[in-house]
Nucleic acid binder design. Structure first.
Lengths: 151, 151
DNA sequence: GCAATATAGTTGCATAACTAACTAAAATAG
DNA sequence: CTATTTTAGTTAGTTATGCAACTATATTGC
């Protein structure tokens, strides 16, 4: 089998197209919806950072959630419109918005996090803790390889 | 550490948000662009199936690329507009479009596939073949778990 | 102190995803 | 053989992504 045909091996193809992460995304979105949260997976990913400590800048959130600034701006637009967060201009740097959770944003932390944790649990059923550590270490290796390649 | 706080462990968070697959997507898109292909990663994923054998239906492509029908319709709209594929109505079933590669669509198979293969190679540098088999088996396990959960 | 540069955030444009609702044609069930 | 159901594909609306260009403010370097 030559190099070209190797790609059509189904598992390499799925690795590259990210079928499993896509499935995990859909599963996560579906579970959030089933539990009555009007919240996208992407919005959750921002809230999860804020639940660890709010009052940070948009740039910080962009870095922490591995997004670019425009995507972060618009996610925050929607989160603000839905009443989960508020933007407050920094007094020290007038370019900066500091992002704070509202009561509504704080209130859903526990129930949403329970759903998220259940998703992770259901998705990794049959994998041992050692398996999951290995999976994460493969991810870390790949992520670092890519970071070295991108500029 | 209680259940709730476990999510904020960074590696669980990254596992759920799919940071590594996202990085791989960007890396793949960037490489395609660097090599002068006016082709998105998603368009490649459709062409890769067609390169394995064209003349299939849109529904088949949707299944093979793990997409829903509307997404597939629009990807094919763009691929057709760019001249990589053509739709031909089936003679046996007038509901069905059969999708064929154009000369342009066939021509880029080899150079694009080389780029794709190099991406996979660069991304998995430092992982042994056994590591990659393990990674795929974890993915399969997770994918199957999710398929059991969805509906 | 001022010009050049860097940083924070926004806006515009194109692509893509998912859901729901729709049209048309085929299959099936009585 | 007609009515119902299923299947193939499209359209519309919302959310999100990535890139490039932009504004406003801070930082720096002479």
């Amino acid at each position: 089998m030559n190099t070209i045909d190797l790609i059509s091996q189904l598992d390499n193809y799925h690795l590259l197209t990210g079928r499993t992460p896509t499935a995990l995304n859909r599963f996560l979105s579906q579970r959030l919806k089933e539990h009555g949260f009007e919240l996208t997976r992407e919005q959750w990913s921002v809230l999860a950072v804020l639940w660890n400590g709010d009052g940070c800048s948009q740039q910080h959130l962009a870095n922490a959630t591995y997004r670019d600034k425009p995507s972060t701006t618009r996610l925050l637009d929607n989160l603000e419109k839905e009443g989960y967060i508020v933007r407050k201009g920094s007094e020290h740097d007038r370019r900066t918005n500091l992002i704070f959770l509202t009561g509504k944003g704080q209130m859903i932390k526990e129930p949403v996090t329970r759903v998220i944790y259940q998703v992770l649990d259901d998705a990794t059923k049959g994998l041992s803790e050692q398996d999951i550590r290995m999976l994460k270490s493969y991810f870390d290796k790949i992520f670092n390889n890519i970071m070295l390649q991108i500029q």
